[in-house]
Design a protein around this nucleic acid. Structure first.
Lengths: 261, 261
DNA sequence: AATTAAATTTCGCCT
DNA sequence: AGGCGAAGTTTAATT
């Protein structure tokens, strides 16, 4: 556990201390967190008014603002990053005014009672990755081969050690052999060449025509040209739809498929 | 100022106390707020992994969950209302597990260091009102044409892609054709010219006199002169009164109007 | 730079 | 209950 980090917490602060902390947070680009009784005025593309009630206000170092009520996943009022903030104190009411030049918008939050206020210095270098695993994509194709094309029937599959590449072998509607290479992200030139090598290897053994399909969420124009030159095909395969297909798939049957191979 | 409300604030709590407070918040349907070092796993429609870093976690009484990083207006991980929560303690790591049956989703948040934890009881009955979008103004005029002028009868309406402009066509007391252009904010010169172009187009088709009314909350002196030059009229239209008119309008009748056109 | 498409979109209204 | 459309949508990608 790391040593305790420097941050400020005020419980039931008076308005003067509250404003001081808010000013500090904003000027030093820290995270400001306030829980208390407030009302909010928004004006910009539309207008809104929020009558008094207890909410949570968050202001981040990039100049984004959030006001959260006691329920609901969405903020009741907000402002994307890039705001400039002003604070004002008037008759023990703390006003925090967020102005966004870009969209000509402004949000004013007025606190007349603060339960909790914190000025945090959040250090966050952690990477965020949203993914569909190669295995997920493979499972999706196996459970719903039409994702590749109508009439496609998988015969076997092979998991490769290289991350991001998984092949599925099968036959198409006409009975022609098909090699499918899956890629989690945008198809690269490498992927095209790799698929080409597989195709060549399979052709040499099978001694008959083999189709090669590179299935990925997207492909660049240049890679598309490479594919065409190599006589290969591209099939757009949306990771999201793979996920959907997976969920809708008959899990039992799918697991059986995996077990029996 | 109201008396201080009961709530709990923990600064640098140990994991045992942290879990205890989290359990209390969830079971008693309070708002849970944690700032600390965490990592997050999400699995559902997609999958995601968030490497360790310092963030803010909010769990609301309706079972919604938010994980906010130090920047960005949007949460990095979230879950809409309706989650069921489980907490677990393992080697001083607090795990909060949110499960949503409806979508078959789950979010796991792991804290190994907590700077601040609060259990709040937010009381919020304040009304939120969003008012006067262009469409609102249009609906208001359609439901209460007298907002434009006495005896005005709308015939049809048209929604434009340009933001802020909505037209209503109708006839006045004398049976003369009227084109109304609505603007959410102060009428601009552009609006005047735009209306003028409409009028010209309508005149060309209808081959008879057409009145043009620019309806907006306010108008500048210069724009007023432009209007006069173009032979057009200005009608002050208070957004607030539009909102009121809308609320008071017979919703059924309004929807019928929209259907029959 | 502008336009289009996607989002773990969510949410509300209508059929 | 399912489907469609809007959102103060925002944000990323593509032309």
């Amino acid at each position: 556990m790391a040593a305790n980090k420097p941050f400020k917490v005020l419980v039931n602060p008076n308005s003067t201390d509250a404003e001081k902390a808010a000013k500090e947070a904003v000027s030093k680009h820290k995270t400001l967190l306030i829980a208390g009784n407030c009302w909010v005025h928004y004006s910009g593309r539309a207008k809104s008014k929020l009558e008094p009630g207890e909410r949570i206000l968050i202001i981040k170092k990039d100049g984004s603002l959030l006001v959260h009520r006691s329920t609901g996943y969405e903020p009741v009022n907000w402002q994307p990053s890039g705001c400039i903030f002003h604070t004002k104190l008037k008759e023990n009411v703390l006003e925090i005014h967020a102005v966004r030049q870009k969209q000509q918008e402004s949000v004013r939050v007025f606190f007349d009672n603060i339960q909790l206020e914190a000025v945090l210095d959040l250090v966050d270098e952690g990477e965020f990755s949203l993914y569909v695993t190669e295995e997920d994509m493979q499972k999706a194709v196996l459970s719903k081969p039409a994702l590749i094309e109508d009439g496609f029937r998988p015969i076997s599959y092979e998991k490769k050690t290289e991350p991001g590449f998984v092949d599925v072998y099968g036959v198409d509607k006409a009975g022609k052999l098909v090699v499918v290479e899956l890629k989690r992200k945008t198809a690269s030139k490498d992927a095209a060449f790799q698929l080409s090598r597989y195709i060549d290897a399979v052709k040499a053994r099978a001694d008959r025509e083999v189709r090669g399909i590179l299935a990925a969420p997207s492909i660049g124009k240049d890679v598309q040209r490479v594919l065409a030159t190599l006589g290969l095909e591209f099939k757009r395969l949306d990771p999201k739809r793979c996920g959907e297909a997976l969920r809708k798939a008959d899990t039992k049957r799918l697991s059986e498929f995996f077990n029996e191979t």
